[in-house]
């Protein structure tokens, strides 16, 4: 017999999809491990059996991650018995619906959409989506139009939180509240990731205080732990709702600032989204006064905050801290 050749993982997984799509009543784990190419060639080696079973569990996860509808059917009368469970992939849920076709122009727009992401899981997911859409035979070239929007996902919290939402798991992370010196641990049901005014927010249900909360990803200052505990389910339009709520807060939360005429602060704050100019005073908007305090304090002597008083104090406090830290 020739030396055993390991079949690459993607080929084993593709073989698995083909086998599970060909069956109506489903295959048991034993059926799969003993017949499907990529498993069957290692099945006779009893010492390798545990590895093979673990391999199968990982493959199931990978298939689901890729959107392959892997169904588990319990044996009647033996619910939950994994030995008797059957697996199958219904073709009707695997294939794109007949009325979903993408034209060359649509694929070009989707390529532009994929280029928005600079790194992380959104880049990876877009790339895989485009690979599947290459099936339509249209070009997926880098767009050369004169516009290129991009959004970074540099916060290391982004990917684990997206995975936690996807697997509906609670997550725990250290959060540094604006103005606080020490981070505190928060345990949440993550519900949606929302980019508002260029910042990534996590909309979540805070399990410790049992109330909805929104967190800035840039202030998650340590590793995100994805817990075993099941999380609350996001509502159908969770991301859109969270987006509207942030926008409402943004429209409602205003501050009045005077900038030295013609200064950098004057030009930049006038160009800021939502700014209203009245005589000398600029009314500016924010989702979070503490975040705005950081932004305004950076302009130094070019600005004076008129109101609210809490914002004025927060800005003065930042300058005092700069003085004391550098004397």
């Amino acid at each position: 017999m020739a030396a055993r050749r390991r079949i690459p993982p993607e080929q084993r997984q593709f073989n698995l999809i083909l086998a599970l799509m060909a069956t109506d009543q489903g295959l048991t784990k034993q059926d799969i491990l003993s017949t499907v190419m990529g498993y069957a060639d290692r099945y006779d080696d009893a010492g390798d059996r545990d590895n093979l079973e673990r391999q199968f569990e990982r493959d199931k996860e990978d298939l689901r991650d890729l959107g392959v509808p892997l169904e588990t059917v319990d044996q009647p009368g033996a619910e939950g018995d994994t030995k008797l469970q059957r697996y199958r992939v219904p073709k009707s849920r695997y294939r794109l619906p007949d009325d979903v076709e993408f034209s060359a122009e649509e694929v070009a727009l989707l390529s532009l959409a994929a280029q928005v992401w600079r790194e992380g899981s959104l880049t990876e997911q877009s790339r895989r989506a485009l690979t599947k859409l290459r099936a339509f035979g249209h070009s997926v070239e880098q767009s050369v139009i004169g516009f290129a929007p991009s959004i970074r996902t540099r916060e290391s919290a982004h990917d684990p939180l997206a995975a936690a939402i996807d697997r509906r798991r609670q997550a725990t992370f250290p959060y540094l509240k604006p103005g606080a010196a020490e981070p505190e641990l928060r345990r949440v049901s993550p519900l949606a990731l929302v980019n508002h005014e260029g910042r990534w927010h996590l909309h979540a249900h805070d399990e410790t205080v049992d109330a909805p909360r929104t967190f800035l990803l840039s202030r998650i200052v340590g590793p995100v732990r994805v817990d075993e505990a099941e999380a609350r389910a996001p509502r159908l339009d969770e991301a859109a709702r969270a987006q509207h709520e942030l926008q409402d807060v943004f429209d409602r939360t205003t501050a009045t600032v005077v900038a030295r005429p013609g200064s950098e602060a004057d030009v930049v704050l006038r160009n800021r989204a939502g700014t209203v100019v009245e005589n000398e005073a600029l009314t500016i908007r924010t989702t979070d006064l503490a975040v705005l305090a950081d932004e305004l304090a950076a302009f130094g002597a070019e600005i004076r905050v008129l109101e609210p008083v809490t914002l004025r104090d927060a800005v003065l406090d930042r300058w005092r801290r700069v003085v004391s830290a550098h004397e």
């Binding site: 509808p69 695997y94 997911q125 339509f136």
Partner: peptide
């Protein structure tokens, strides 16, 4: 058959 996109890909 052409495959669907996963929830996260879409």
């Amino acid at each position: 058959e052409k495959p669907r996109l996963s929830s996260r890909e879409a």
